[in-house]
Amino acid sequence: MITASGLDLTFETNDGPVQALRDVNLEIEKGDFVSFIGPSGCGKTTFLRTIAALETPTGGEITVNGMHPEEARKARAYGYVFQAAGLYPWRTIAGNIRLPLEIMGFSKAEQTRRVAEVLELVDLETFGRKFPWQLSGGMQQRASIARSLSFDADILLMDEPFGALDEIVRDHLNEELLKLWARTGKTIGFVTHSIPEAVYLSTKIVVMSPRPGRITDVIESPLPRERPLDIRDSPEFLEIAHRVREGLRAGHAYD
């Protein structure tokens, strides 16, 4: 699905070059839920943006669905959910979800059908005609997820989508996201800096560390795909969380 080998990315800044990614090798299979975790500056967001062709690597190879990321984008391979919901205040919720469909040139009838479909998927059926400011932060982020699902991309890339929300809302949305993943069978790339969130959601956890940004550990989760919230108290869960924490600490011991 997504393959990166020997991926390097160096930003030219005023203070000289900054190596954001060094020798990143990763395989993401279809249907995986992959979390990228690490302290700020570890390149987790940069890697996600590279998959989305928002950044151009300076070395190495990356393919998405066997294509160059730029081509993959044109083929609508992925939907991208940003840290902020980024809904247009002058459009209703339905209007916001319709936006990418308008841009991609879907017919009016198809737009309406798909908007209704994804609104139902994120439990916002009755909120289509509301404006963004009339919704809570969590609901806005759900609308943003619906928008990224509307054009049926196989891959969902999420950059700390719940980072700005409080923990109770976050737990709820994590649960919802797992259900959504089970229903749609999407491949999900998820950036976070919360260990419980990464362990709870993922089939694969990629631990990264900074300066230069690189992968220090890749953990295949033994947890079952069906996960109630209280799985977070199980010994398996705690064991994985421990391993992630160790990985993060090892990365930090560097400096």
């Binding site: 984008r73 044109k74 609508r76």
Partner: peptide
């Protein structure tokens, strides 16, 4: 972020103008 979002949908400059810049 708004502009990146438009890029992820492969929006043209004209679409970015009419749907994002002008109403904003």
């Amino acid at each position: 972020m708004d502009l990146d979002q438009m890029r992820t949908w492969s929006a043209t400059r004209a679409q970015t103008f009419w749907k994002l810049r002008l109403p904003a």
